[in-house]
Write a protein that binds this DNA or RNA. Structure first.
Lengths: 334, 334
DNA sequence: GCTACCATCTGCAACGATGTACTCAAACGG
DNA sequence: CCGTTTGAGTACATCGTTGCAGATGGTAGC
């Protein structure tokens, strides 16, 4: 079977516990002993058994990441970055897909998934803050990307409102006056959709333009919904000269529908999105959007979570981080 | 602390082992005993400690998935599907990104990552079959998507060559005669790129058209490379009336470059890809491509791997599965 | 020369589950 | 009526680590 500490101890002529001490960088070990042990380890090809270590220490060195679906480009990119950052600090990331479903989110917080991880990065899409608070147990949770502003939680997010305001302002500065907004959920106010919508409305207000509810095309949150929303507006005969997709896939879905119908982008209708996924840069026309600072989000959230896990972060209230955004002006709305 | 089996045993007035027997569906337990135990479990809110179970049983009920990068749409979609299928059989998927780098692939096969999983789904991008064989240890490995045809391995793949031949044939049937091919790696013959290139050449041959090496634009495997390859051809003055991207992101990158330069798709140049990622359907123009049967790949590969792990698959040579493909004719090459 | 101290190393228990071997009583066969 | 089988449950060892509490032996202090 596999080589154990006992085998190493025997080979090095020391006790099992000394091997353990060497591996855990215990201070008081003679260099000669340390070397003997290390040689035995190398010779036998010993590798620590992570399961046993976890059982004994109660730590798994894994972080949980709860998000809706990895097939959504934004989440795929986010997961990729988070995993890379985590690995620099010696942690792995275990992903759980929630499908934006309350039950799945709940079971990620409470079920076996929690046992496997030392802490959670959680993108709450369906759950409320109180529900999260009451079911998170004793392991650290860092909320990601959504704006449940609540002193109980660490939160790493983006400037949803400000950034949405900036993109909308950019559309208005280009002379657009009727900016359709795609992806708004009427009932949502504190989530990404709500905050971005609010930024949109503030930009309209700044420009002295009245908000027209007819321009708000509600629906889902991904590609199909973007296309459907634009189709709905066109079929209903609602006039508009720009579309703001509350995320890039919505915007790209919308743009696709416009182009299919022979509507020119940006000449007839300008289009802007939010997230700056890789695809936005390579769309045709390339998509004007907002880059929400994903690198910063990945670094800060992993850093915060690991600091909590390792007790490096003082025990007080939740830390709130807002990454800076950058407006990316491209062809779809120059 | 957490509730253990011992607590349950005490509460139910039975021995610890009886609790274990109830949990493991041991046959000979009186209904009354079983009920007492189940009641105690429910009352105390007991949850089995997965780490302890793993240590004792040597199984983790996790599958490893090694791929280059989750931010690549194809892999994001694949990972999402694999995780969903695995969870139906009670397994989780732990992802490791290799960046298509040999060292990372090797460490996924040998390092701590293996310990954490009962078996591996492996997309070898850099390693050779022999290297994989010699370092996989004793846990089952199912190769995914690449065509290392080797009796030692289970392999679930797509009809790379046939499908590429079919797309190319479609371009030729549309009257195109100079089909540039983007993403070919000159040195690769057995990997996806090599097989798809070979399918391309066979289609040319079928149509009695000579292969022109000048139309082969080598380079990387993702968006940038697609754009750069087309830019290279155009700048070099190589004439072509179609582009076959060896994957969708290459094709989309290429298409973007064409459109930027005012070249009409499909009027001036038709474009086709391979993979049928979600984005292909919503690109403008939408992308003609090949759907490689990802659902079938996900189901067969997970099924095969778990059957191996659980000893349900007879012990003989590697099983080879090739999923069926579907040609998706869209606007970029009608 | 004896105590006190320190660096260094060791043995044992414990983490929480499962496998093996065993006990014990009831049922059964002849 | 006694030996054997079978159902139901239990005790103990074990998986491979780490925490805790010593054990050891050399040196310093006075």
């Amino acid at each position: 079977m596999a080589v154990t500490m006992n085998d190493v101890a025997r080979a090095a002529g020391v006790s099992l516990k000394t091997v353990s001490n060497v591996l855990n960088d215990y201070e008081f070990i003679r260099p000669a002993t340390r070397q003997k042990v290390n040689e035995a380890i190398a010779e036998l090809g010993y590798e620590a058994n992570l399961t046993a270590r976890s059982l004994r220490s109660g730590k798994t060195r894994m972080l949980g990441l709860v998000l809706s679906d990895l097939s959504v480009p934004y989440y795929g990119e986010l997961a990729s970055k988070l995993m890379k950052v985590a690995s620099l600090r010696g942690y792995r990331v275990l992903v759980e897909q929630s499908d934006a479903n309350v039950d799945n989110e709940l079971s990620a917080l409470q079920g076996p998934f929690r046992q496997l991880t030392d802490g959670l990065l959680f993108t709450p899409l369906a759950m409320e803050a109180d529900a999260v608070a009451s079911s998170r147990g004793n392991k650290p949770v860092v909320l990601l990307g959504e704006y449940i502003l609540d002193a109980r939680f660490d939160l790493v997010t983006m400037k949803n409102e400000e950034a949405a305001r900036a993109v909308t302002a950019h559309l208005l500065a280009g002379g657009r006056r009727r900016v359709a907004v795609v992806g708004a959920h009427p009932e949502d106010s504190g989530g990404s959709a709500g905050l971005r919508l609010s930024g949109y409305r503030k930009a309209l207000e700044d420009a002295g333009i009245a908000f027209d509810p007819a321009l708000m095309a509600p629906g889902g949150w991904w590609r199909d919904a973007g296309a459907a929303a634009v189709a709905g507006l066109l079929d209903a005969g609602v006039p508009f000269d720009a579309v703001f997709g509350l995320n890039d896939t919505l915007a790209l879905g919308a743009m696709h529908e416009l182009l299919i119908r022979g509507i020119k982008v940006p000449q007839d209708v300008a289009v802007a999105g939010f997230d700056d996924i890789d695809e936005a840069r390579f769309a045709s026309p390339s998509l004007t959007t907002v880059s929400p600072g994903m690198d910063e989000i990945a670094e800060r959230s992993i850093g915060l979570l690991i600091d909590r896990i390792e007790g490096l972060q003082p025990e007080d209230d939740g830390v709130h981080v807002e990454a800076d955004f950058i407006l990316k002006i491209r062809e779809s709305a120059p």
